[in-house]
């Protein structure tokens, strides 16, 4: 039996966000936007979905009088990412002849 792929992570932009955050301690919204080549509106929606799932922490504050959003992966997010990658590996093993 295959483990079902986590629907929260199994979308292009959300997976990219989590993959970015797994490699760093924390990242600003502008950094994620730049690295994922996404629009601000789309990125905000996907970040909110990840936050609602408890996969990331979002801190909104002011930096030099401008609003600044910082994202950080949670332990729940790390566990979900690991499970997702393990499930992917299972699928890929079976697909190999």
């Amino acid at each position: 039996m295959f483990a079902e792929l986590d629907p929260i992570l199994h979308s292009q932009l959300r997976l990219a966000i989590i993959s970015l955050l797994i490699g760093v301690k924390e990242a600003e919204f502008t950094f994620i936007k730049e690295k994922t080549n996404s629009t601000a509106g789309n990125l905000s929606v996907q970040i909110q979905k990840l936050k609602d799932a408890g996969y990331i922490d979002v801190v909104k504050e002011f930096k030099d009088n401008y609003p600044n959003t910082t994202c950080k992966i949670t332990s729940k997010g790390i566990a979900a990412f690991e499970t997702y990658v393990n499930a992917l590996q299972q699928y890929l093993k079976v697909q190999k002849p």
Binding site: L15, K35, N37
Partner: peptide
């Protein structure tokens, strides 16, 4: 990047690898 584009397992793995590499290059 498309919002909810469904990926096959190979595309997912490729996306993860590429994004991790991008993050590495982000903190020069």
């Amino acid at each position: 990047m498309a919002e909810d584009k469904q990926l096959n397992p190979q595309e997912s793995l490729q996306l993860i690898t590429e994004t991790i590499q991008k993050a590495k290059g982000g903190f020069h």
